[in-house]
Amino acid sequence: MKIIVFANHLAVLPALDHFQKSGWLQAVVSTDKLQGPNFQIRDYCDRTNIPFYQVSKKQLNEDLAHKIDLQQADLAIMFGFSYRIPEKIFSTPKLGFYNVHFSLLPAYKGPDPIFWQIKNGETTGGISIHKVNAAFDEGEVLMQQQISFIPGENWGICNSRYAAVAQNMLIQFTQNLYNGNELPEVQTQQTSTYYKMPERQDLTIDWEHMSAGEIENLINAANPCYGGAITYLNHQPVSILEVTPANLSSNGEYKSGIIVYSQPDSGIFVGCKQDEYLRINIVQTADGVLSGFKLAALGLQTGQSFETMVVSIPETTLT
Rank of each mutant, 00 (worst) to 15 (best):
N247W: 10
C225G: 13
P245Q: 00
E242T: 11
F269C: 01
Y194Q: 06
H235G: 07
P184H: 02
S249L: 10
Q190T: 10
E214M: 13
N220D: 15
Q201W: 10
T231H: 06
N234H: 11
T231K: 08
E276M: 11
S211M: 14
Y194A: 05
T204S: 13
I215G: 00
E216D: 15
S249H: 01
I268Y: 07
A246Q: 01
Y194G: 02
N176L: 07
P224H: 10
P224W: 11
L218H: 05
Y178G: 00
G180A: 02
E242K: 14
L218E: 09
V238P: 14
N217M: 11
C272K: 09
W207F: 01
P184R: 07
A222F: 06
S250D: 12
L233R: 13
D275M: 10
P264L: 06
Q236F: 07
E199F: 08
N234D: 15
S239M: 13
K273P: 06
A222V: 03
Y232G: 01
A166I: 07
S250T: 14
N223S: 14
S262T: 01
M169T: 02
F173D: 09
P198Q: 11
C225D: 15
N217E: 07
V238H: 10
L233M: 07
G180M: 07
Q201E: 15
F269N: 05
G271L: 02
G227N: 12
D206E: 11
Y178C: 12
D206K: 15
I259W: 04
G252K: 13
T244M: 10
G252F: 04
T188E: 12
E253I: 13
I230Q: 11
G213F: 14
E253S: 13
E182F: 12
S250H: 09
